[in-house]
Every structure is written in C-alpha cells, then in structure tokens.
C-alpha cells in the first residue's frame, strides 16, 4: 500500500475487472524487488488498462495518446537511460492502433518492459471488436459475430525479436509477479501479455458477467508451453498457451546508440 496514492482509492475499475489484479501484482513485484518507485516511469496510452499505473501508483506517469505509448517510451528511455521505463497498455491500444510501434520497438530491442493487458475488447469506448477478440464472439461493432481470427501477440513479439516474452493470465498471479520481476531485471525488450477479465464490455455479450467466470475459464483452458510440443494446431485452437516464450540476449538499442554517438561526435 506504500506504493499507492491512497487518497484516490477505491479504483475506478468495474467490479470483477482484472486491471486491479495487474496493479496488485505490479505493486507487489516492485516491493519484492525493493525498487524505488521514483526511479520508474510508467508510460500508458488510452483505455481501461492504461489507468493501472496512472494515477494509482506513486511513480512518474505519462498518459499519452491512443496507440502511441511505445513511441513516447522510446524518447523517455533514450533521454533517461538510468530509469526503468514500463509501458502498460491494452490490446486495442498497442496491438491494434499502435501495432507497428510494438513490432518495431521489439525489433530494435529497446530496454523497456511492456505489460500488455489483453481483455479481448476495446472496453472503455463501449466494447468494439479488437484484434484479439476470439472468433465467433459478438461485440458492439460485430453484433452477429466476429468473423476474424484473433492475433497471437506474444508469438508475434517473440518473432519480432524481443529479449523476453511471456504470457500469463490474471489467475496465475504468482508466476505473473515473478515474470514482472524478471522483466524489470532483463536488459532489452521484455514483454508480458496478461489475459484479463472484462465482464462488463466483453462478458455481457457471451454470458460471462462475473470476474469468476473468466478466472474459471483461464483455469480450464490454460496450458503450459512445456506441454504443447506434441499437440497439433487444431488441438490448441481453443486453449490458452501460458508460460515463458523467449528469454535471450540481444544487443540493446540505447546502448548501441550511445556507443555510436561516442565514436562519431564524442559525447
């Protein structure tokens, strides 16, 4: 609780929303690592999940335009390389509108941590279809059903070249917390996709009106990445693959930039 601005509690999230759980894990991860919140910059975009660090967490926060938190975070990290830059945003924000920023930040291997809270929908703006909405789910903009295939963001970022990629749900709180700590420690682009309930905008259309329905679904459908090797794509269609996808060492962008500056202009 010492990392939070207590005067604005209770949070603005709906009852059963997973964003509070993510904030809870984030605060606990910072606490267990013993980090000073004054050394953290949280950059967020627009959406429900962008309300996670700002205004509740006692750190510097930058609430930016829709889909562009990674562009802002690039600037912050280049000018303040000693600070931990964390981007927390939703699926519609950095996978939908800012999708290209995500791919190219991962390609450059910029030293930031990105926590993508995937709630399957554009929740704040009224439940429009997002790139991660599962096929067949009705939404406000697809009233009959969604006919598009959902995007697998963690796999995409892993292929784009990030240093650390993991996927967890809000049910797996302890591994999620551990993963967040690893993301903080990792030099390079660390990305965690967190599947989160949205019982109000997404769940009401498919009969999952409580947060518990989602957590039970995560519990049933989740399968560890170590166990999927022998399964076909068809068997995995309805499952959620969780775990650590990638953990590797690659050259980091800000370091290379500084080195180049030193060589060419001497500062």
């Amino acid at each position: 609780m010492k990392y939070l601005r207590e005067e604005i509690f209770p949070t603005k999230f709906c009852s059963g929303c997973g964003c509070g759980t993510v904030l809870n894990c984030y605060a606990h991860a910072i606490d267990e690592l013993g980090l000073n919140p004054e050394n953290i910059v949280s950059v967020t975009g627009i959406g429900c999940s962008s309300w996670i660090p700002s205004p509740y967490l006692k750190c510097d926060t930058l609430h930016t335009t829709h889909g562009r938190p990674l562009a802002f975070a690039t600037g912050v990290k280049i000018m303040k390389p000693d600070m931990d830059v964390v981007v927390i945003a939703g699926d519609g924000d950095i996978a939908g509108i800012g999708g290209n920023h995500l791919i190219h930040s991962a390609r450059r291997n910029l030293d930031i941590s990105v926590f993508l809270v995937n709630n399957y929908i554009y929740g704040m703006t009224g439940g429009q279809v997002s790139p991660t909405t599962p096929m067949g789910h009705p939404t406000t903009t697809t009233p009959y059903k969604n006919i598009e295939h959902p995007m697998k963001i963690a796999e995409l970022v892993a292929a784009a070249g990030a240093s650390y990629v993991a996927r967890w749900t809000t049910y797996n709180v302890f591994p999620l917390m551990e993963s967040m700590q690893n993301a903080f420690k990792k030099k390079g682009f660390s990305f965690i996709e967190i599947l989160s309930p949205c019982p109000v905008a997404h769940g009401r259309k498919i009969g999952m009106r409580e947060g518990q329905d989602y957590l039970n679904m995560f519990k049933e459908k989740a399968i560890k990445i170590e166990k999927v090797k022998n399964l076909s794509e068809k068997e995995l269609e309805d499952r959620i693959v969780i775990g650590k996808f990638v953990d590797r060492e690659r050259t980091e962008f800000t370091e290379s930039l500084r080195k180049l500056n030193q060589e060419r202009i001497g500062k």
């Binding site: 939070l4 509690f9 209770p10 949070t11 997973g18 759980t21 904030l23 809870n24 709180v173």
Partner: peptide, 28 residues
C-alpha cells in the same frame, strides 16, 4: 457505504497464509 457485500473471515484459524486472495483482489 457503496452498497456492496464485502467478505468476512469465517474460519480464520484454517488460513494457510498463501496470499492468493491478497494478490487476486483487484481493490487492495
């Protein structure tokens, strides 16, 4: 005050101290 039914601990002596509720609670 907000009109919700909060939880109460009925079997506190059986608590394992696993902290699952603490971390799952979205509202601290």
């Amino acid at each position: 005050k907000k009109g919700y039914y909060p939880p109460k601990a009925v079997k506190e002596d059986e608590c394992l101290g696993c902290r699952l509720c603490e971390l799952l609670c979205p509202e601290f």
